[in-house]
């Protein structure tokens, strides 16, 4: 990448928009995942009985659906990111790349 292309991209407001959107989505979702996982670990460390509480009088405990939900949440969060990045961000990126060539 030469200096000229670099300057053109950096001064393009669309680039600033892309950086802002991509960075904030990436970090927000990272914090959500960290909060879910470390919330779970702290719950296990400090109050294990909570997850062992039986659910609706059967043998099933609260911990089972919580565990499965964490697995599902990891998949859903990646889905949310990929959906936005591969449509909205990539469209914006495409325009930045085109405009840098001119």
């Amino acid at each position: 990448m030469n200096e000229e292309v670099l300057k053109r991209v950096q001064s393009n407001p669309k680039f600033l928009e892309l950086v802002h959107k991509k960075t904030s989505l990436g970090w927000t979702l990272t914090l959500v995942m960290l909060a879910i996982y470390y919330g779970f670990i702290l719950l296990l460390a400090f109050s294990p009985a909570t997850l062992g509480t039986p659910l609706g009088g059967g043998v099933m405990t609260v911990g089972i659906p919580v565990g499965v939900l964490i697995i599902v949440s990891a998949f859903v969060l990646t889905g949310v990111y990929v959906r936005r990045a591969n449509t909205e961000f990539d469209r914006l990126n495409q325009q930045i790349v085109e405009e840098a060539k001119q």
Partner: peptide, 24 residues
């Protein structure tokens, strides 16, 4: 029993973080 599930969760949750911060 349940401890096995806790274990698996630890191995899975690194993946979203790889996507958000590292992959692209």
């Amino acid at each position: 029993g349940y401890d096995g599930l806790i274990y698996s969760i630890g191995f899975l949750v690194g993946w979203p973080v790889i996507l958000f911060l590292v992959a692209e």
